[in-house]
Nucleic acid binder design. Structure first.
Lengths: 246, 246
DNA sequence: CGATCCGTTGAATTACGTCAATAGACGTGG
DNA sequence: CCACGTCTATTGACGTAATTCAACGGATCG
């Protein structure tokens, strides 16, 4: 996990961009000080493997910036992305040393991390870290189950629409009401396909189709303008009221 | 959630079949007493809706016996099962009153349950309940992500094989080495199809194919003898070493 | 300039879905 | 006991959405 990493300057938690959304969100000043005492920052360039399925994971990390993907690859090469780690999401499993999945930085990633044993001790002592971790894990579980609906029952077009909608929602999609929101795709077409259980080709075709239908606009391969978010959400089977799209 | 329910006699936790695997698994005697003070048993006949997506859930429940399925149904009727609740699994989300999914008893179900507010208070006070709940939730999350690989990347045959393998693993599949293990299917073909993101017809065809290939034997619609578990696991893309199949 | 990487597009193939008929299991009532 | 209806599962014929195979185009880089 470490070879290409670089240290970043330690900053105060009070200025931390994920202070109120990460695993530390519920901490009182005292607890925060204890977390702070064992934290360290680290950065990894895009492409770095942050964890590998079955290998030991030495740290529990919170994503500060950038994006990482969790995936599993079958022996014959088929790959499925099972999650996207964005700022404030965590990586690592307390109570278990081995990672269940591959985790790869898909853009440059900076994390705030804790040595595993130290973090687990902290988990026992600082109730607000434990409760926040439980809440985040429950949220992740709901999201994973929501995504199962997409993988199991949606058409290619719906899958792509659902993916874009979920990205806008999670990235806070720079919503500029009326004019459509600007969306940066952190993933390549191949990675999107692996996320959706599709091939590169069908993914590309569906993106093209959404463009031709006027729902989105391609500024570049990685930059998309959502022309009609409401219509896109409808395509994703999200009628606005309840249907949570990850 | 309640109309058709019946009470069951309260038994001591020390004789409880899920005492060492449910949310109470790590409790010391003192904590167990506190849990016991607010617990109650309840039974529901097969077919009962234990929760509905978007509706309030008044209790946190542990499955004592029987089987329930969690699912979401899209407006047009497409349905996806997102999880199977077996003994020791829990139902309900601390910190949130609304269920994210439909939960239906697929067989007669008995639960040990706690009123939500009381359970949440207990979660704050008894660290071993909180830590066990976190561990179980992390396990569920891994399982949900494993299942995403099945839904997104496996063929119909592999899906059916993976489902059977996972059932054997979770039900402790009455393994009779050499002679094959006996497996009771808690789900109808339709429910299996909804679990696998397939239609009833393809599910049925794949079961037939596995039978004709000598991997399984159909004693009745709901009773299967796994003739060659190793071969079945191979079909499920499980090479024995690491590949976790839910 | 050629080489490589990534994405798009077209044509052919196929795995799975859809539609439809049939069969077995079970219960009810004459 | 048999006739009948219902419910679930199986099987067949056919249609189609997505994959596969293949060619091509536009970046980026030595």
């Amino acid at each position: 996990m470490c070879r290409m990493s670089r240290f970043s300057p330690i900053v105060s938690c009070s200025e931390c961009p994920i202070r109120h959304s990460a695993v530390c969100a519920e901490c009182d000043p005292d607890e925060l000080a204890r977390l702070s005492a064992i934290k360290s920052y680290r950065s990894f360039p895009a492409g770095t493997m942050l964890a590998e399925a079955g290998e030991r994971l030495t740290h529990f990390s919170s994503i500060l910036s950038g994006c990482a993907s969790m995936s599993r690859t079958l022996e014959d090469g088929r790959r499925q992305n099972v999650g996207l780690l964005l700022p404030s999401d965590y990586l690592g499993r307390p109570g278990r040393a081995e990672s269940a999945f591959d985790v790869e930085a898909v853009s440059d990633v900076t994390v705030c991390r804790f040595e595993r044993a130290a973090f687990e001790a902290l988990l026992r002592d600082t109730p607000h870290v434990a409760s926040r971790l439980l809440t985040m894990t429950l949220d992740e579980l709901d999201a994973a189950r929501d995504w199962a609906v997409v993988l199991g029952r949606m058409t290619a077009r719906e899958k792509v629409a659902a993916f874009l909608v979920s990205l806008v929602r999670r990235q806070g999609g720079v919503a500029r009401p009326g004019r459509g929101s600007l969306l940066h795709l952190p993933l390549s077409r191949e990675a999107i396909a692996d996320h959706l259980g599709l091939t590169i080709e069908t993914t590309s075709r569906q993106i093209t189709a959404l463009r031709k239908d006027g729902l989105i606009e391609l500024l570049s391969n990685r930059e998309i303008r959502i022309a009609d978010f409401g219509a896109l959400a409808m395509e994703a089977g999200d009628d606005g009221d309840g249907g949570p799209i990850v």
